[in-house]
Write a protein that binds this DNA or RNA. Structure first.
Length: 1134
RNA sequence: GCUCAAGUGGCGGAAUUGGUAGACGCGCUGGAUUCAAAAUCCAGUUCUUUCGGGAGUGUGGGUUCGAUUCCCACCUUGAGUACCA
């Protein structure tokens, strides 16, 4: 019987499935080993050959561990919630559950065909209610927890409540919202229930907050930072804008330090650790508080420009409703009093003014109220202040107030009030501080200005009247710039002076306060103390705006650039820091800051809390309903909260998420069931309280929710009572080997570590890192095939249309073979390959003198790679039939009649027609060949292009392997009982050793070559001894399990090879008596000489020097030195 | 810009602590077998050469008896990150 991969593979795949060969037990005497793959998102396109790379590697490892006597858990499942299924649903109306189910079927069929040893009885799907019940449950646990910095772990919210009841929140050391009011125990008790809930929400590990989010209008959802690439959405490349929304967030920032520390305890790739470290972005430094100096009260008055008057006119047209309402009333008011609207008085734009009575009517709450009042008073006006509410509620009262004002012009009194207001304002300003975070507090004496982010809340409060216009314009301009624009020109320096000054905390000097968009509102405090001599950006800013650059470094030239280095320089011109090196200066300054109460040492993280709400349909629903606008958790015993049906998967017309379309999406707190929305009487909250029915949360959870804990579920996937049983969790503990792509570095792999740490804090899981070892498999890229379309273009000589290209279109669709592409000679192409029609066409064009000679170019077009053989020759017929527009194309072939395509490495993708399906490979060469070949391509971690050309090598290896166990033309199975020769045993044990080492190093490519070497050697020895061939089958079985099972079966075994004991290496078979020494001269190997291994150094040296080849090589020169390394090498220095 | 990884034949790649550079496979060349092709088998295949040899692991230096491996500088490519104070 000849090697028939199809029959063998089908048989064994069936056998494994029927016998559940790879089912893992949760109780075993064997040591446990957990091998995990990152579970796939089942896309509609199915698997391509790049997907199984990691699965093959982990499968080899899992099978190897079974041979080594481990109880192996090797599960697989589907990350089946996600955007593509939803978008497909939007387009076709097909329920995402249905498409997902179909895609999973395809995936399963494809996976089964490759012969993986997955325990399918443990399959999980994130989109199944039995699974997401526990995702919802974890969410509730997070909601019911807060992070205690004193115990450095998450604790139940009840411990926080009891602390509040006993001593308020003064002593609570929690990770919570930044602006939290402090309260005493008695105050806490007096708070309303709602107020208490609001406060607690600021402490919970998952919380609702109004946050600026990345909103993608095209997708109609928010995106996490890691879902945005280069300012556009990772999926689809749609633009993303900043928008404020009420969202669920996860307080991952609480775990920043532990996520960082944990990296030292796990064996993960360094680049991946580096990118998590960068993402967390820890920086050590200090907080420093700068006092803002009060603005000068009297400022010179400017004159209003023409432009400003234009602005006012516009303002008048757009005046808000209330103003126009009042204006209507004042205008119609009968009598001698005439009001004017929005009249300019001095520098100020008044709301309403009556000249005859010297009265001004103004709305309260203007930023420059004090200055206005002062001015109006000095000019002899009476000001009547009104509010919006007054106008709306009782316009008559307002009118009488105005009337009273008119009859009551008490200038002196108004001035008194104005002074009071001013004073109050000045006092308030004295209290203003700008807090900054800096990593270089030691350079504080080099501060010459400060910069605030344009969005900083203090900006509007401190800006002087004079600078207001410029500042407003700048803020407006920055807000308008998209993320992408800002990224595009990083180098442009821009900013505006606010007119305000801060006081240097040590020197007391006045420091200008600027705003600039190089300062980000989202990092630190959104403000920096600028030290131009020590920070290049500050330096550039100072240079650009002509701000002073004091030098505080001893002996450093800063005339050209800032000095950013820390070590090796001493601080100067810095009072008590003078002469200190970096480290000492840091310690001293932090001590001083803390002593004076103007700052403190601080560690800052770049890691932001993770937004957890998505405005999507196809995700986990939240177990949340809203009562009085406050979120309430549904009791865990009522889970799962199953995704409702909707008729369309789009957001609602009024902008609510798709779940807003569900008719049955309200929570009945009496029956604890999901009920029809009509029971919630209108949207009025009070009414709904009566019948205990409340609206459910409309957002769903993000893609990473389900994938952040699935590895724990595999341990006990069928458990309906618990997340996973304590016994299962204790037995399996954690993942021993995790294989997957590096693209999840700052997404899934960070969130999963976060949840695991949280679950560990709560005593739910036994370890706080879920995966001991992780390997990133490289991406397999595609090798696209290109055909080149011949194209002529013309350039007009006419200066006006110099760059206009005229392309010939129509009948002459000509593709040229790769080797012709370099030939751009028009005279070569023109006569030979053009039809009469186009010839006339070209000649017509050439009649115009202003047209230059045609330029020949070739337009590359993708061809499907399946039309191309391993020699890059195109199947022209297949290509022509591929698409209607190619039916009539002509081909310019090589001299031998073949047509060659061009090749280029690109990401494997449907749109590039370079996708190779594993099914096709399995069909032609078999799964064992595919497995061996993917491993043989190169190191696992490295990314590499796919090319079919090498696959014949592994296929013929399998055939040779098969032949070792068979003989004759018929291929009869023949294995002899004879004792193996020393040489045969040497080959076997050499291979055992190598494969053991290779697997330990995850160097699968090299073990495939050692199999080849072994089979080649045994083949030339004509070895068919059972003593060698039986262990050989086990050695190969992790890599090529089907053929190994078949041979094992033929060798007479009744049980699967899967748990056969791995051959044990015995060094005695490799012992040699002599060594063929390389003899090198000055390090260059020239020839070999054989000596016994037990020969000593001196004798070898003598023998080598006496050899005639040595004498010839030396050509009479005297050797200066001879180095003999016994068992290795001889080197002669001449 | 910063961080990380990597540069070896025509191609994928090998060389585990410094010790025979190019294992293994593809491709190519020649041969056997065949009516022929496929398949299979055998031999050769880094470059260069006056057939003695010489050069050679991105470039230039260094350490060493000896460097693909260690150190320094630079170049190129890929990945991540992006005004992070």
């Amino acid at each position: 019987m000849q090697y028939d991969h199809k029959k063998i593979e089908e048989n064994w795949q069936k056998h494994w499935a029927e016998n559940q060969t790879f089912k893992a037990s949760n109780t075993s005497d064997k040591p446990k080993y957990y091998v995990l793959d990152m579970f796939p998102y089942p896309s509609g396109a199915g698997l391509h050959v790049g997907h199984p790379l990691g699965y093959i590697a982990s499968d080899i490892y899992a099978r190897y561990k079974r041979h080594k006597g481990f109880n192996v858990l090797h599960p697989q499942g589907y990350d089946s919630f996600g955007l593509p299924a939803e978008q497909y649903a939007i387009q076709t109306g097909q329920h995402p559950a249905k498409t997902t189910e179909e895609n999973i079927k395809t995936y399963r069929r494809q996976l089964d065909r490759i012969g993986f040893s997955f325990d399918w009885s443990r399959e999980v799907r994130t989109s199944s209610p039995e699974y997401y019940k526990w995702t919802q449950w974890i969410f509730i646990q997070l909601f019911n927890s807060w992070y205690n910095k004193d115990s450095n772990k998450a604790e139940d919210i009840s411990t926080l409540v009891s602390t509040f009841e006993k001593e308020g929140n003064k002593k609570v050391n929690a990770v919570c919202d930044d602006e939290i009011q402090s309260f005493t125990a008695s105050a806490w008790k007096k708070f309303s229930k709602k107020k208490q809930q609001e406060i607690l929400l600021q402490y919970r590990l998952t919380f609702l907050s109004e946050t600026e989010v990345n909103w993608c209008p095209t997708l109609g959802t928010v995106l996490a930072n890691d879902e945005i690439v280069n300012g556009v959405s990772e999926r689809g490349g749609h633009p993303v804008v900043r928008k404020k929304m009420k969202q669920w967030s996860m307080r991952i920032s609480a775990y920043a330090q532990r996520l960082l520390d944990g990296l030292n305890t796990i064996d993960w790739p360094q680049p991946l650790k580096d990118s998590q470290t960068n993402w967390i972005g820890r920086s050590q430094g200090a907080m420093v508080s700068f006092k803002v100096l009060p603005n000068e009260v009297t400022e010179e008055k400017g004159t209003l420009s023409y432009k400003k008057i234009e602005e006012i006119k516009e303002l008048r047209l757009n005046s808000p409703k209330v103003t126009s309402l009042l204006w209507d009333v004042l205008r119609k008011k009968k009598g001698a009093v005439k009001f004017r609207q929005q009249y300019i008085l001095g520098d100020f734009l008044t709301d309403f003014v009556c000249f005859s009575k010297k009265t001004i009517v103004e709305f309260t709450g203007k930023e420059d109220e004090a200055e206005r009042a002062n001015y109006f008073a000095t000019e002899g006006y009476t000001v009547v202040y009104i509010t919006n509410d007054e106008v709306l509620e009782n316009i008559d009262a307002v009118l009488s107030k105005i009337n009273n004002g008119i009859q009551f012009p008490k200038i002196a009194e108004i001035q008194k009030v104005a002074k009071k207001v001013l004073k109050k304002k000045v006092e308030k300003e004295v209290e203003k501080h700008i807090d900054v975070f800096t990593t270089r507090p030691d350079t504080i004496f080099g501060v010459s200005f400060m910069t605030l982010a344009p969005e900083h809340e203090l900006v509007s409060q401190i800006v002087t009247y004079k600078q207001k216009k410029a500042v407003k314009a700048y803020i407006h301009a920055t807000a308008k710039r998209s993320e992408r624009d800002r990224m595009a020109d990083v180098k442009t320096i821009s900013g505006v002076f606010t007119g305000a000054y801060a006081e240097h905390p040590f020197t007391g000097e006045k420091v200008q306060i600027w705003i600039g968009d190089y300062v980000l509102a989202s990092y630190g405090t959104g403000a920096v103390m600028a030290v131009p001599c020590g920070d290049q950006r500050d330096y550039d800013f100072a240079k650009h705006f002509n701000i002073g650059i004091p030098n505080i470094f001893e002996g450093v030239d800063i005339s050209e650039e800032a000095h950013e280095g820390k070590d090796g320089t001493k601080i100067a011109n810095s009072d008590f820091l003078n002469g200190m090196p970096y480290k000492k200066a840091m310690k001293t300054i932090i001590y001083e800051l803390e002593k004076r109460g103007i700052g403190y040492g601080k560690i800052n993280y770049r890691l932001r809390d993770a937004v957890f709400s998505r405005q999507r349909y196809w995700g986990e629903p939240f177990p949340v309903y809203y009562k009085d606008g406050m979120p309430q958790m549904i009791d865990a015993k009522h889970l799962p909260i199953v995704l409702p049906e909707v008729e369309k998967y789009l957001p609602t017309e009024d902008g609510k998420p798709p779940l807003g379309r569900a008719e049955k999406w309200s929570w009945n707190t009496k029956t604890n069931t999901i009920v029809d929305n009509s029971f919630v009487i209108s949207s009025g909250v009070e009414k709904s309280q009566n019948n205990g029915i409340y609206p459910l949360e409309l957002n769903t959870m993000p893609g990473w929710a389900g994938s952040s804990w699935y590895f724990n579920r595999y341990m006990d996937p069928g458990n309906t009572e618990e997340f996973a049983s304590k016994e299962a969790l204790d037995y399996w503990q954690d993942v021993d080997l995790y294989i997957g792509g590096s693209e999840h570095a700052t997404g899934h792999l960070l969130y999963a570590r976060f949840w695991q740490k949280f679950l560990f804090d709560k005593g739910i899981v036994p370890v706080d890192e879920f995966a001991k070892k992780l390997i990133n498999q490289g991406m397999i890229t595609g090798t696209s095939a290109f055909v080149y379309q011949l194209n002529f273009s013309f350039k007009f000589k006419d200066t006006d249309k110099e760059n206009t290209k005229l392309e010939i279109s129509g009948n002459e669709n000509i593709f040229v073979s790769k080797n012709f592409v370099d030939n751009k000679d028009f005279d070569f192409w023109y006569p030979k390959y053009f039809s009469k029609l186009s010839k006339m066409h070209i000649e017509d064009i050439l009649k115009y003198e202003q047209v230059s000679k045609p330029i020949v170019s070739f337009i590359p077009k993708h061809s499907d790679v399946s039309f191309v053989n391993t020699s890059d020759e195109l199947d022209i017929g297949a290509f022509k039939n591929w698409r209607p527009e190619y039916n009539d194309v002509k081909f310019v072939t090589e001299e031998d009649g073949t047509f060659k395509v061009g090749r280029e490495v690109e990401k494997m993708s449907k749109s590039k027609y370079n996708v190779v399906s594993p099914d096709a490979i399995c069909e032609e060469y078999g799964a064992d060949s595919l497995r061996l070949f993917e491993m043989f391509l190169g190191p696992l971690e490295q990314s590499k292009p796919w090319s079919d050309s090498g696959i014949s090598g592994v296929y013929s290896f399998l055939k040779k392997l098969w032949k070792l166990y068979h003989s004759g033309d018929e291929g009869t199975f023949v294995v002899s009982k004879d004792k193996a020769t020393a040489e045969e045993l040497k080959t076997l044990h050499k291979t055992i050793k190598k494969v053991d080492e290779d697997i330990a190093n995850f160097s699968f490519n090299t073990s495939v070559s050692s199999f080849m070497i072994a089979v080649n050697e045994l083949g030339s020895l004509k070895c068919n001894k059972r003593e060698v061939l039986e262990p050989l089958a086990i050695l190969i079985s992790p890599y090529a399990p089907h053929i190994a099972e078949e041979l094992w079966n033929k060798l007479g075994h009744k049980t699967s090879i899967a748990t056969a004991e791995f051959p044990v290496f015995d060094g005695k078979h490799l012992v040699e008596s002599s060594k063929n020494y390389p003899i090198s001269f000055n390090g260059k190997m020239r020839f070999m000489l054989e000596f016994p291994l037990d020969m000593n150094k001196e004798d070898i040296e003598k023998a080598v020097l006496a050899d005639e080849k040595t004498i010839a090589q030396l050509a009479g020169r005297e050797p200066k030195k001879v180095i003999v390394v016994p068992g290795k090498i001889v080197n002669i220095v001449g």
